[in-house]
Design a protein around this nucleic acid. Structure first.
Lengths: 379, 379
DNA sequence: ACCATTTTTTTATGAAATGAACCATTTGCG
DNA sequence: CGCAAATGGTTCATTTCATAAAAAAATGGT
């Protein structure tokens, strides 16, 4: 239905925001005549709309923008229990939201997800008329075809073709992706860093997840295992090198994940929840301070390695709100800063953002939106 | 002169080796009719040639290959003193080779390079009729436009537009690139790993250089500083964290570079040349063994970090031949292997190769060849 | 009112890709 | 030996696509 030219226009608009026909022609290196025709098609199909006039010298240009209501998408996050599902529009805004318990058994899980999707469709009303796809984010490895979960320790799954199952039950095309990858792909399409060609995201949950955009593309690597930093060898002097479930010693995950932090807190007789622990550290309790400082420093060192290796323009670290302004965050920033090679020009910017399970769901929805916009899984 | 279609054919052939017209049509997703016409043009211009027939059922297919003598290129390596210049054909074979002292003063340097290039042209004879470009590899940072050396501590240069100078004096288009980048771009176009979408190269010289191909493209990063591992924080327990010229402590460069190794050897009263040092270690001299083991382990740890982060299919480590089968290499492999997360399927393959200054020169030549083949600096 | 300037549309022209038919050359089989 | 089946490559009329040039539209300044 849409030609490559149409997709190029949609991609350019969602990458750089609204612009005129002439801008599009310049950016894409084609004639204004071609753009004119393609834009007409997209206007007729209610995918684009003309926005306000931009006045300069001469005839004002009309801004073109992708219509938010041109399509809607469903995103499923199995990153935590409960699972979160959202219905989003083409700008990534959440139109409806549902939570369901995350079932371990694959069949039960699909069952409850299908029910939740029906709920979302009902809640969305007219906006689901052009519902065009489902995305799933899960903690684990996903096969090359973006259908099957090859392995997930968190879910206890091996070779579960959840993509095919959902497609069959909902009649909607479905894309499956690793949780960290879905998160960063959502950021690339919908987030504040949209359009940046090189950036990375790290999140601290029970484990530590990480993904990278390099040259505008997701870094997957040869076997799809690229970008992992949770098993980076963080053998800082003075840090004990605890054995990790991966068989090595001194992995980042054994120090900086929420699981590691709460385990260490329990052993030290400190509160096991991250909120109270951070509050205690804020009051100056020495053990809590040391624990969070150590964890933050470890993640900071890994971040420095990441920055040295990939030289991204931004690294976004998603943290529990309780940690946002804590010694954890400060130690992270300091350790990262002290281990990167400073050069001229603006270096990598490290920013913190609140961790919310919803982000994974809307990242998952963006997988389907991406296909709508670019006709493929690349932008 | 050549259209995008022509370049696509040349790129496909040099990426995947000789193939038939029908294969090209399948690979590129265009009709046989289009390929037929484009190939005819390239045959007429003596850029392609028809090779042997491949028999199967039905009419045999004729293999098409890029002619080695379709063009020739000059590569300049300023990676070491003396500078090495080579004349290569379109398959990367070295047709002639010249060395000249590497002058510090930019003007003098250009002067001697121009003279050496004339020598190469004379030595190349008829093969330089279609000489189509010059590439320069140098240790330092190169501006975004691939003309100017922004900074090089090894050469003592700041903002030297060596590209423009050579273009003016030789009349040939010139591309300038960082030494490690030139090396891996040469491997991508001419080497055994040609066509691999994800691989990395590391070389151990007075410093340590490193570059990566990700998704078939050179990893440059936001500020062009990606891929550097020489300042990776290698703070292995038991390894002293020596201060580095970058201001941090415990950088890889302070342990594993040839400069660091020979400095440490001098302090320990061991031979300062790498050959005798390696020989001593091979005989079992404890201090020499410890020194090389420590250096190899450090590089191995950095290699493990690299593999975890990028998940390449191959890592090629270029070493002085004396180190090739030494405790350095063994420690490197062991340390790398023990710090990567093993998963199903074939993991990253780490291979050693002899370090030769020529590789940088032919890598530099490949920059010009790349332009001939793809019409841009991407493959 | 009129001109300069810039954006957008229209239109006529040319280039490029295609599908379908056709020719070429081999293997396999009776 | 002869013929069908299969595959590779070419030719050519047709369609699609992109473009440049011209025209129209919309505004600011003089």
């Amino acid at each position: 239905m849409l030609s490559p030219g149409h997709y190029q226009i949609l991609t350019t608009l969602s990458r750089g925001g609204p612009c005129s026909r002439t801008d599009l022609a310049r950016t894409l290196g084609v004639s204004k005549a071609s753009i004119s025709g393609l834009v007409r098609d997209l206007l007729n199909q209610n995918i684009l709309c003309e926005q306000e006039l931009v006045f300069g010298v001469g005839r004002p240009s009309v801004s073109l923008a992708v219509r938010a209501d041109a399509a809607s998408f469903i995103g499923v996050s199995l990153q935590q229990d409960p699972a979160v599902l959202v219905l989003t529009d083409l700008h990534g805004s959440v139109l409806a939201r549902v939570e369901v318990p995350r079932a371990e058994d694959p069949d039960l899980c699909v069952e409850s997800l299908v029910a939740a999707i029906d709920q979302l469709r009902a809640a969305g009303g007219a906006s689901t008329e052009r519902l065009s796809g489902v995305g799933v984010a899960l903690p684990g490895f996903v096969s090359h075809d973006r259908h099957t979960c090859v392995a997930s320790t968190a879910l206890g799954w091996r070779n579960v073709d959840i993509g095919a199952a959902l497609t069959e039950r909902t009649g909607l095309p479905t894309w499956v992706e690793n949780d960290a990858n879905a998160l960063i792909l959502g950021e690339q399409l919908f987030g504040p860093l949209r359009g940046s060609p090189d950036f990375s995201m790290v999140f601290v949950s029970y484990g530590i997840g990480c993904a990278h955009i390099v040259n505008r593309r997701l870094l997957r690597g040869n076997a799809g295992g690229a970008g992992e930093i949770s098993h980076a060898p963080i053998a800082i002097e003075g840090f004990g090198a605890a054995p990790c479930r991966c068989g090595n010693k001194g992995c980042l995950e054994t120090v900086a994940s929420l699981l590691a932090i709460t385990n260490a807190a329990r052993r030290a007789g400190l509160p096991e929840e991250i909120g109270p622990l951070a509050a205690l550290a804020a009051k100056g309790q020495p053990d809590a301070l040391a624990l969070l400082h150590r964890a933050g420093s470890a993640l900071g060192l890994a971040t420095a390695q990441l920055i040295q290796m990939l030289d991204p323009s931004h690294v976004v670290v998603m943290l529990d709100p309780a940690l946002h302004d804590s010694v954890f965050a400060h130690a992270l920033r300091k350790e990262a800063d002290s281990h990167i090679l400073h050069r001229e020009g603006p270096g990598t910017m490290v920013t913190f953002r609140d961790f919310a399970p919803e982000n994974f769901a809307s990242g998952a929805a963006s997988l389907a939106a991406r296909y709508f916009i670019s006709g493929s899984d690349e932008l």
